[in-house]
Structure formats: C-alpha cells, structure tokens
C-alpha cells in the first residue's frame, strides 16, 4: 500500500474517495446497469469518422444481431457475464438445473477455502434468490427475461450478484494458486491479487479473472476484441477450445453483451 507521503495532516484519502464517488455518481445517473437490446450499429455514433472502428463495427454486425450495454463501473465483465449466462439458461432448462445445483453447493466450497461464512451467506442467499427468480419453469420465456432485466437493474440485487461472482473467482484463484500465479504480473502474490484486484467491487477484470470464473462455473465465453489493431474484430474463447455460451464485446476498458445471429 504505497500512499503519497504527506506532512500537512489533511486527510487526503478522504478527498480522493470523495472525488471518486462524484465521478461514479455521474456515470450511474446517465447509464442503466444493463440496457435494452440495441442494434450493433449503435456503436457507430461513438466512432464517427474513424475508419478502423467503422470497419470493425461492420464486421461485427455481420456476426451479431444485437448488443446490450452494461454500466462502465469496473464491474462490467461480471455483470455482463451473469446477465448473459442467466439469459442463456432461461431457454436451456437442463443447464439451468446443473448451474443451480453448482451454485447451491458453491457456498460450502468457499467456506472450506477459508471465506468467512457469516458474510458469505448473505451474498450466497441473495445470489440464489436471483437464480430462482429466473427459473425457466416460473413463466413464459418473455416473462422470465423481463424478470431478469428487472432484477439486474436493481442495484442491490445486481451488485450482490457481482460480489458473489467475484468471490467465486477469488476462490478459484486460491484453489489453483500454483497455476494462476504464473499469470500475475508484477510482484503480487495470489493472496494480494485476490484481495486487491478481485474481491473489491469496481475493480476491472482481466483475462485471469475471466479464465478463473469460467473454469469455476464450467461456462465457455467468447470475447470479441475491438481495438485499434487490424481491420476485423478478433474472437477469443475462454477457456480455450470451449463452446461459448456467453458472448461479449471488449473495447479497451469495457465489456458489453453480444447476441449472435
């Protein structure tokens, strides 16, 4: 924890945190946690006159029909992943039951790994409540999809889902620390990385978060990368060789949900 040396006795941490809160509020006032489905071409407005991106959007529009935006608050990967996967489960009943069972049992596993059971229970209860609210058997596909959209735009529920996925990710990193240690840059230990970059809310996700979460849940994810290089979007599947159930687009610093043709 390196802080700026200071001698004037003012509480600079608090000033920094206050400023951060103001920026976050500005974002939250202007963007929903998860948007409606939008045409892929809605991205054009952000890259007017930019040939590289315009050609990539065109490429993307050939493979995907819709995009669903998530709020850029550092939790976007986890929120997008949870939404897209639960939405996939609404029309895949058997997989829903597999996931529900896995999610049910995940709490005991995390407790065994050393997570505090008292606070974990709170997140797990809420997570299971959300999973049950989107049970494919609870209504027509449209009704359940509406329920999913509603619950993911309620900050309390939506954030608790993110927290629980962060804890599952952290648990996986700990469980297979020897493996994941190789992916960590700098002098972080797995322990430090989990506490500093995975468990706290609003910390952005990297490949290591994605691989750990996908492995923990047994769910394949395809990420379409849209950056300055090349003229086409580049797809990458996590874990490698898996069949993707969740499709995301990554633009530097942010993930949104994609719907394949």
């Amino acid at each position: 924890m390196d802080k700026i040396e200071q001698n004037d006795g003012t509480n600079r941490d608090e000033l920094i945190m206050q400023q951060q809160r103001e920026i976050e509020k500005e974002i939250s006032d202007s963007t929903p946690l998860v948007s409606e489905q939008l045409p892929i071409t809605c991205l054009n407005a952000e890259y007017l006159g930019d040939e590289v991106f315009t050609s990539k959007i065109q490429d993307l529009a050939g493979k995907y029909k819709f995009l669903r935006r998530t709020r850029p608050d550092g939790n976007c990967f986890f929120r997008a992943f949870a939404y897209a996967y639960l939405e996939h489960l609404i029309s895949n009943k058997d997989e829903y039951l597999r996931f529900k069972d896995l999610a049910e049992k995940s709490k005991d596993k995390l407790v065994q790994l050393g997570f505090p059971s008292f606070t974990l229970e709170d997140f797990h209860d809420t997570f299971m409540e959300v999973v049950k609210r989107v049970d494919p058997a609870s209504g027509s596909t449209d009704q359940v999809c509406d329920e999913l959209h509603k619950v993911f735009n309620e900050q309390g529920y939506s954030d608790y889902v993110v927290v629980y996925l962060r804890l599952l990710t952290s648990g996986k990193l700990q469980e297979e620390a020897d493996f994941y240690q190789h992916f960590i840059e700098g002098n972080f230990t797995i322990e430090e990385f989990r506490h500093q970059e995975v468990e706290p809310m609003y910390k952005e996700s990297d490949h290591i978060h994605i691989i750990a979460l996908c492995t923990a849940l047994g769910v394949g994810v395809r990420v379409e990368y849209m950056d300055r290089g090349d003229t086409h979007v580049k797809a990458h599947d996590f874990p490698e060789g898996s069949t993707p159930k969740v499709f995301l687009i990554y633009r530097p610093g942010h993930y949104d949900i994609l719907y394949p043709n």
Binding site: M1, K3, N11, D13, E14, M17, F115, P116, F118, T119, L120, F123, V163, R166, L167, H195, Q196, E199, P200, M201
Partner: peptide, 16 residues
C-alpha cells in the same frame, strides 16, 4: 480519520 488499506483500496464486501 484512519489510513488503513482495508478501509480504502483493499476493502472486500466480505468484511463486516
């Protein structure tokens, strides 16, 4: 005010 990492950048929602 207290300068403690877990109250700032290392806060985890699992703390009570």
């Amino acid at each position: 005010g207290i300068c403690l990492d877990i109250l700032q950048n290392r806060w985890s929602p699992t703390y009570d």
